[in-house]
């Protein structure tokens, strides 16, 4: 598989009243065509900012992409013109958001909102664009699509609206779909439906998906590979199977332990912590050490001194921790 999207050493800064916040710090990621890449982490760790950087939608000011590159195959999107980025957005890379309730424009019919996307990216008549909208609504499993296309967002439920968002995002057959916590705002039963839908569509169209979530369960179900983020850094990445079964970074281990496993015996004593103590540090106050050091049960003096680089530990599995061997041994 070839590399479709490559993020290299991406740095994004935000100016706040408290000083400069380095929201993304030397992020490197790779998305191969046709795969589902999961990005996990707590809120505020930079997952969404990574997505917005790819889309070229970092709110500016106060945000600014300071360093790095984002390659779509060979083309650096950070150097692309505005006109080119408009072609890319929605046409080659599209995105769905966390809040289906507010992500659709309340004064336009949903069919028109989907058709607008098609009209922007394809040389097609208005009637055909509307046809495509109805077709997409059918694809995402909306009953009576011809009728629903004429509905306004407020007439649809949250799950329906997220389906509309997915239909819109996929309407121009993009090569990459970024899903930013697509189910967080939805009921649990609806969440499962949306996941199934994404999985089916992915199989059918071969669109590569970047799945942003804080839900390890969703990752286990969907993702081929995972990147774990913490305070603007990627601290571990690898195949989903490796990460879930053999997590190396103390933070990843904590995240996995937070997920209750129905199949495990509740009386069994857990080998590691089931909550992560403390909170994510303020990004304006990151020192030179490891960002996780304050919350880490395995902290050693070197953790406060120097930030660990992300290093491969086996084929496709990389970790940023000074004490990997020790952590795994415990």
């Amino acid at each position: 598989m070839t590399s479709l999207l490559t993020i290299k050493d991406l740095v994004v800064d935000f100016k706040t009243r408290a000083g400069n916040a380095r929201v993304l710090n030397q992020i490197s990621l790779e998305l191969k065509s046709g795969e589902i890449l999961g990005i996990v982490g707590e809120s505020g760790c930079g997952k969404s900012m990574t997505a917005l950087s790819v889309m070229g939608l970092v709110p500016s000011p106060p945000g600014k992409v300071s360093e790095g590159s984002i390659l779509l195959e060979e083309e650096d999107l950070l150097q692309a013109s505005n006109a080119r980025m408009r072609q890319v957005r929605g046409g080659i890379i599209s995105m769905i958001f966390q809040e289906p309730m507010t992500s659709l424009n309340p004064v336009f019919r949903v069919g028109d909102q989907i058709a607008e996307c098609v009209l922007l990216h394809e040389d097609i008549s208005k009637t055909d664009a509307w046809e495509r909208a109805v077709e997409m609504l059918t694809k995402v499993g909306i009953p009576e699509p011809a009728l629903r296309a004429k509905a306004y967002p407020h007439e649809l439920s949250g799950g329906m609206r997220q389906r509309v968002m997915i239909a819109m995002a996929l309407s121009c057959h993009p090569r990459v779909l970024i899903a930013d916590e697509p189910t967080t705002a939805l009921d649990v039963t609806v969440q499962a439906q949306i996941f199934d839908l994404l999985k089916d569509l992915q199989r059918e169209t071969g669109t590569a998906i970047i799945m942003i979530t804080h839900d390890m369960g969703a990752i286990a179900e969907l993702a081929d590979r995972v990147a774990v983020m913490y305070a603007g850094h990627i601290i571990e990445s690898g195949l989903t199977k490796d990460i879930l079964e053999n997590p190396h970074h103390p933070y990843t281990r904590g995240l996995i332990a937070c997920v209750p496993h129905l199949e495990t015996d509740p009386t069994e004593v857990r080998p590691y912590l089931s909550e992560i103590k403390g909170v994510v540090p303020s990004l304006t106050e990151l020192g030179k050490g490891c960002a996780f050091a304050d919350r880490c049960p395995y902290k050693t003096p070197v953790c406060e001194e120097r930030r660990p680089d992300i290093e491969p530990i086996s084929e496709g599995h990389a970790v940023a921790c000074h004490n990997v061997e020790y952590v795994v041994a415990v």
């Binding site: 935000f14 706040t16 408290a18 916040a21 809120s43 505020g44 994510v280 303020s282 304006t284």
Partner: peptide, 8 residues
């Protein structure tokens, strides 16, 4: 996202 600094 940047963490919001609440005035103390």
């Amino acid at each position: 996202m940047a963490t919001v600094d609440e005035p103390i």
